[in-house]
Structures are given as C-alpha cells and as structure tokens.
C-alpha cells in the first residue's frame, strides 16, 4: 500500500473553493448586511481573512472579522495536563444581532465547533450562526453540520488530514496521510 502523503487539493483548488463559498455566503444571506466572519485559530483565521477579502471585492464593502481561540471551552481540557498554547481571542465588534459565519479548516468530530458556539454566545446574542469549512472529513460525534463546505473528503479515522496555508506553512495544499 502507498503510505506517502497524498495531495488532495492544491493551491488553485483551495482558491476556487473559497471563491465559491464567498458567493454562496452572499447568496444565502442575500448580500452582506449584518454579516460577520469569525475564524477559529489558527487555520480558520487565514481562511476567514481570505473570505473577507473576496466578499469585499464582490460587494464593494467591508464586513467585520474576529478571531476565536476555543481552548478554554474544550470538553477535554480537564482530562489532560498537556494543553495547546493559548492564543488570543479578538472579537472587535458587537456580535448581537449579527449573522456570524464561523470559519474553520477541517470539520471532524464537531467538538471544536460546539466549543466555538459556546464561546460566541458569551460575547453576545448573534441572530444566527453559520459554519463554513474547507474540508468536511466526516466522523461527527455531535449533531453539527456545515452550511458551506469546500470539499467533502470521506476519510478513515486513522488517516490524518492537514490543511497547509500560505500564511503559516508557506504553501497552499490539503494533504491526507496514514496516521502514526
């Protein structure tokens, strides 16, 4: 069997997905009124920034964007002494009555999104929360689904899916490999 990492989406593929998602967001919400983007650390931040840029080009205006670190809301934090480094949360606008689009790179068990929704609601009462992801790999453990999906990628539990982005990895690609 071939164990080498396999590229399942290249730079052009990621760009096209984001362009389509930007149009889908505008179509579903009938424009950009009251929209706001919130990227989940760290991959989601860069995807949200790119969506923000596309939406402002298409509609000729700017929608607010925030950054969310969900570490403090995770359900597995008490079990483990090891922790992911805590990043800053920065939501520089009032969420109340906004239609918030949560943005993440990979949707897997849904637990991160559960944590993110709890965090958002601590900041205000959004009119609506929608979810945009680049990759949906299945294996949900909670009743959560994405409103906008770049690519559905059925995967095995032992496979690892990594989204590499120009802003943090120097290169745009999605790869799938055998887990260790």
């Amino acid at each position: 069997m071939d164990n080498r990492p396999k590229i399942v989406m290249d730079s052009d593929g990621i760009e096209r997905c984001l362009t389509r998602i930007a149009y889908e967001i505008l179509e579903k919400n009938k424009g950009m009124d009251n929209l706001a983007l919130v990227g989940i650390r760290t991959g989601g931040i860069y995807l949200a920034q790119r969506l923000q840029k596309r939406i402002s080009t298409i509609e000729n205006g700017k929608i607010p964007m925030g950054i969310l670190d969900v570490t403090l809301y995770r359900d597995d934090i008490a079990k483990s002494g090891k922790k992911a480094p805590l990043g800053k949360t920065d939501i520089p606008f009032d969420l109340t009555d906004k239609k918030v689009i949560l943005v993440d790179d990979v949707l897997f068990t849904g637990r991160t999104i559960r944590a993110a929704m709890d965090a958002l609601i601590d900041f205000g009462r959004p009119k609506m929360i929608q979810l945009a992801v680049l990759i949906d790999r299945g294996h949900r453990e909670l009743p959560i689904r994405a409103d906008y999906v770049g690519k559905n990628l059925p995967s095995s539990l032992w496979e690892a899916i990594s989204v590499h982005l120009l802003e943090k990895n120097g290169k745009d690609e999605v790869i799938i490999e055998e887990g260790t």
Partner: peptide
Amino acid sequence: ETAESFLEISTREIKKVPTLRGK
C-alpha cells in the same frame, strides 16, 4: 504568554469562561 491571552476575558461583558468548571 498564557496570561496575555487571559487579559481579554476581563474586558468582556460576561467575564467568565467554563475552563475550570467543577474544580
């Protein structure tokens, strides 16, 4: 560095996160 990320919580309207619930 961890403390820097905690600064923001004290500026929220709801100054609480559920991290140490039950401790």
